[in-house]
Design a protein around this nucleic acid. Structure first.
Lengths: 205, 205
DNA sequence: CCTACCGATCGGTAGG
DNA sequence: CCTACCGATCGGTAGG
């Protein structure tokens, strides 16, 4: 009986901590996305979740670790979604389109989180910084491989500079989080198809 | 004689002030581009130019005004270069290519200044902030008009979403300042032609 | 352009 | 989770 109560007590306490932590994460993502990491103070975050500044440190270890956790979960979602998109299709063009759909779906789901992951990682130092840079390179590698594969299979043009083609695609996708927020009349899938059309067909008539 | 000396004195003093101001601008651009506006302190800037922190205020009025001046001159260079590119060519496709060449030439000339103008304007407040936002809209309007014109003249495809086409081009160009620095084997003109090829022809074979 | 300094704010902690 | 506080650093200024 006392065993059972104690267990329930522990479960409830850990659930409360989890939801506090989640609230801190959500508020921090909104603030980092709007003002940027260096201009957001721990006092800003505390007042957004209704705590006093010092109390934040019950749930997190440091401001930078908070950023690292947010960036890492954001990037990991991209990697998972990308791999699923690649595996779901066989031909380079279909995979390319699926990648863009996955990208836009993630932005529609949580545009602020994506923006923090894309822009605020620059303020990380040490191991978490190199981790992020490695994962970004891995992400770009997915497009490099895909485009090289498409050229090899004759689906993509061999008259283009493949490195520049990759950078064009990545630039386009990175920019989407600045103007697409998931609201508005167009769905993520609509926008993804339009972007894929532009990148695959080009502007010329 | 005393008149003449006094005049020379004034000229020399103002020249010295100008070069101090220029040194402050150059050092600030490097720092803002590397660490961002909020994480750069006036003490960082002062020590980069060999002054004590308080002495900076002989040459500038505030940290934010310093940012505003840097961003404004950066954007103005873009507007001037864009207008020249548009006027130099007649057909939409040629104008499009000329715009990309102008863009890459500016980055090659001063990549750090471009990066500050593109990213750090977010930390401006009040009138300078709305000024910048207006100019950015004007800049995007150049591409909107150009693409609409190209479609109307049958040079660009009427099967694409023109708004998405504009955002694809702008995303691609904004991203160039992250990877092109004017060094390396490829010239700004080489890269500009490759980018124009990708955007005009598309990836598909 | 320096000396000397201002009040405000920062991330974070000890102890309860 | 709060009270109370730490040393460090911030942008900026008065007076010379």
């Amino acid at each position: 009986m006392s065993d059972r109560r104690a267990t329930i007590g522990v479960v409830e306490e850990s659930t409360a901590k989890r939801s506090s932590r989640d609230a801190i994460f959500a508020a921090t993502i909104a603030l980092f996305s709007e003002r940027g990491y260096p201009s957001t103070s721990m006092r800003d975050i505390a007042s957004a979740v209704g705590l006093l500044p010092g109390s934040l440190y019950v749930h997190i270890s440091s401001k930078e670790q908070l950023l690292a956790d947010i960036v890492e979960t954001g990037i990991d979602r991209f990697m998972v979604a990308c791999r699923e998109a690649i595996e779901a299709e066989k031909t380079p063009a279909a995979r390319f389109r699926a990648l863009i759909h996955a990208h836009m779906a993630l932005i529609a789901e949580d545009p602020e989180h994506v923006r923090v992951a894309l822009h605020q990682w620059k303020y990380l130092t040490g191991a978490s910084r190199t981790d992020v840079m490695d994962k970004r390179r891995e992400y770009e590698g997915i497009f490099q491989t895909l485009i090289a594969d498409g050229i090899a299979k004759g689906e993509f043009s061999d008259k283009l500079n493949p490195r520049i083609a990759v950078l064009t695609v990545i630039g386009t996708l990175n920019w989407t989080s600045e103007w697409f927020h998931g609201d508005g009349p167009e769905t993520a899938d609509d926008v993804a198809d339009d972007i894929a059309d532009v990148l695959l067909s080009g502007l010329s008539a």
